[in-house]
Computed example of a mutant assay.
Amino acid sequence: MRALDQKLFLAVLFAAVSIPGLALADPIVGVWKTEPDRKKLISHIKISACGDKFCGEILSAYDTSGKEVQTPNIGKQLFWDVASEGNGKYGGGDFWVPMINVDVAPQMTLNGNSLSVRGCEHVVCAHQTWTRITP
C-alpha cells in the first residue's frame, strides 16, 4: 500500500472510530420485551443508537396470550437522548409514558439480557424489567 493510501485509510479509520454515533456495538442496542402494562399489553421495544445517545421505538404490542394487537402507539418513540453512564447504567433524556401521556426521567440498568427500566415524575416512580429478544 502506498504511503498516501495508508494515510487516507488510517484517517478514515480513525474518523469512523471517533464518530459518536457509532454506539452500535453498545450492549443496550437490540429488541426488548416489556412486562405487561396496566392494560395487560406486552410491547417489543427497539433500542437504537441515535447519534451518540440511545432512543427506543415501540415496534409491536401483544396481549398476554401472545396475540399481536394494534395500538396507536406502535411506531412512536418511547424514549430519546438516553446516554450511557458506564457500568451498565443509562440515563438522561426523556421517557414517554403512553398510559398517562407524560415524559419522565429514565434510569436504566443493564444486567446481561435484562434491562431494569425506571421512570419518575416528581416523587411517583414506575419500574419494569425488560428481557432481550434480539441483539
Rank of each mutant, 00 (worst) to 15 (best):
M1C: 11
M1R: 11
M1A: 14
R2L: 14
A3P: 10
A3F: 14
D5A: 15
D5I: 14
D5Q: 13
D5P: 12
K7M: 11
K7Y: 09
F9R: 13
L10N: 12
L10E: 13
L10D: 14
L10I: 11
L10T: 10
A11L: 07
V12R: 12
F14E: 13
F14S: 12
A15N: 07
A15H: 06
A15W: 09
V17T: 14
V17L: 15
I19N: 08
G21E: 01
A23E: 09
A23S: 11
L24N: 15
D26W: 08
D26M: 07
D26C: 05
P27D: 09
P27G: 07
I28F: 03
W32T: 03
W32H: 01
E35H: 05
P36D: 02
P36E: 01
D37T: 01
R38N: 15
I42W: 04
S43C: 14
S43E: 11
H44I: 08
I45E: 03
I47A: 06
I47S: 05
I47T: 09
S48V: 12
A49F: 04
C50M: 07
C50W: 03
C50N: 05
G51S: 02
D52K: 06
D52N: 09
K53L: 07
F54V: 04
F54E: 03
F54T: 06
F54Y: 07
F54W: 02
I58F: 07
L59D: 11
L59F: 09
L59C: 08
L59W: 12
A61K: 10
Y62M: 05
Y62D: 06
Y62A: 05
T64I: 15
T64P: 15
T64H: 10
T64W: 09
S65R: 15
G66C: 01
V69L: 03
V69K: 05
Q70P: 14
T71L: 03
I74R: 05
I74F: 02
G75W: 09
G75A: 04
K76S: 12
Q77D: 15
L78M: 08
F79A: 00
F79T: 02
W80F: 12
W80E: 13
D81W: 07
D81P: 07
V82H: 05
V82K: 06
A83Y: 06
G86T: 04
G86L: 01
N87S: 13
N87Y: 12
N87V: 09
G88F: 00
Y90F: 08
G91P: 01
G91S: 00
G92L: 02
G93S: 00
G93N: 01
V97Q: 12
V97N: 13
I100M: 00
V104Y: 05
V104N: 05
V104T: 07
A105P: 09
A105Q: 10
P106Y: 01
Q107N: 13
T109V: 10
L110R: 04
N111S: 11
N111A: 10
G112R: 03
G112F: 00
L115D: 01
S116I: 06
V117F: 02
G119T: 00
G119C: 01
C120I: 00
C120F: 01
C120N: 00
E121L: 15
H122E: 14
H122Q: 13
H122Y: 14
V124Q: 11
V124T: 14
A126R: 12
H127I: 10
Q128G: 01
W130N: 00
T131D: 07
T131G: 07
T131Q: 09
R132Y: 00
I133H: 03
I133N: 06
P135Y: 12
